[in-house]
């Protein structure tokens, strides 16, 4: 597979007041691959994403994009690099239509007037490139779409901008079986189109279905980053719940530092 990572994080620390949520986290994202980011509730997955996308500023650590160190201070910086995030809570406006949502904050204009035909054209082209072949209308309000369709619009919004890395935070969490399959197919297609994809998921089936690599966060630490083909289902579950599995994962003395806290974490009932 691709040799050099497109996006590389190392030594990321992030605290909220006295609470350190991320400890020395590293992550590599390769073009053309789906990297699954897994971890229990509260492990810090969403926080890590928000650090990458410029919503939070990191306390220390480095972000390297395309081999160059970069500083991401705002969502605009991230977009400028070609990093797009599909947030867990979608960030769509129900009162706007599909095209309006896809271009929100980056509208095309002619003079001071919105250039609706161009935006509609680009939106249609992008949806088609994601093999979305039928919708009722591109001018349908997002409010009237199903969960899977909304997710599709959110993903299309992310790839509209020639983005190079797309990060999806639990895109299938709220979906039924059929819609989950569609969205996963879409995720795979993004990687096949050459993008670096990060898929955050709780669902081991999803992870094994589409990912090339798995990165497991455990209590704010990166327990392991492994190739999907090198690990089993139960090893990943162990990495998520205990931070280590056999000889991969955090060194043994680390988890024991946390003592009884491990017991407090709700074990994954998610498969």
């Amino acid at each position: 597979m691709a040799a050099t990572p497109l996006l590389e994080l190392s030594g990321i620390d992030k605290s909220f007041g006295p609470v350190q949520v991320l400890h020395d986290v590293g992550l590599s994202v390769y073009p053309g691959e789906v990297t699954a980011l897994v971890g229990d509730n509260g492990a810090g997955k969403s926080t890590l994403v928000k650090c990458v996308s410029g919503i939070y500023t990191i306390d220390s650590g480095t972000v390297t994009f395309d081999g160059n160190p970069v500083a991401v201070h705002s969502p605009r910086d991230a977009s400028a690099l070609g990093i797009e995030v599909v947030y867990q809570d979608l960030a769509l406006c129900d009162n706007l239509d599909i095209v309006q949502n896809m271009f929100l904050g980056r509208e095309k204009k002619r003079g001071i007037v919105l250039d609706e035909p161009t935006m509609e054209q680009m939106a249609g082209d992008t949806l088609a490139s994601l093999s979305v072949r039928t919708v009722k209308s591109l001018r349908q309000l997002v409010a009237s779409l199903s969960g899977g369709q909304r997710q599709t619009v959110a993903i299309a919004k992310a790839v509209l901008w020639n983005s190079r890395v797309v990060i999806l935070d639990e895109p299938t969490a709220a979906l039924g079986v059929a819609q989950t399959a569609q969205v996963l197919e879409l995720v795979r297609r993004l990687a096949d189109n050459g993008l670096g994809v990060v898929l955050i998921s709780h669902n081991m089936n999803d992870v094994f279905a589409v990912s090339d690599r798995i990165a497991a966060l455990y209590l704010g630490r990166m327990a392991a980053q492994v190739k999907t083909t090198d690990v089993t289902h139960s090893q990943v579950v162990e990495l998520i719940t205990a931070g280590r599995s056999g000889n991969i994962g955090l060194p043994p003395e680390k988890p024991s530092d946390f003592g009884g806290e491990i017991v407090d974490i709700t074990p994954g009932g998610e498969q």
């Binding site: 919503i55 969502p75 947030y87 960030a91 406006c93 129900d94 009162n95």
Partner: peptide
């Protein structure tokens, strides 16, 4: 206009509008 679009966006979902810059 972009301004009008943004008014609707903030009214529809403030957080989404903020994330859209």
């Amino acid at each position: 206009t972009t301004y009008g679009r943004h008014v609707y966006a903030v009214g529809g979902n403030t957080e989404a509008a903020r994330r859209a810059g």
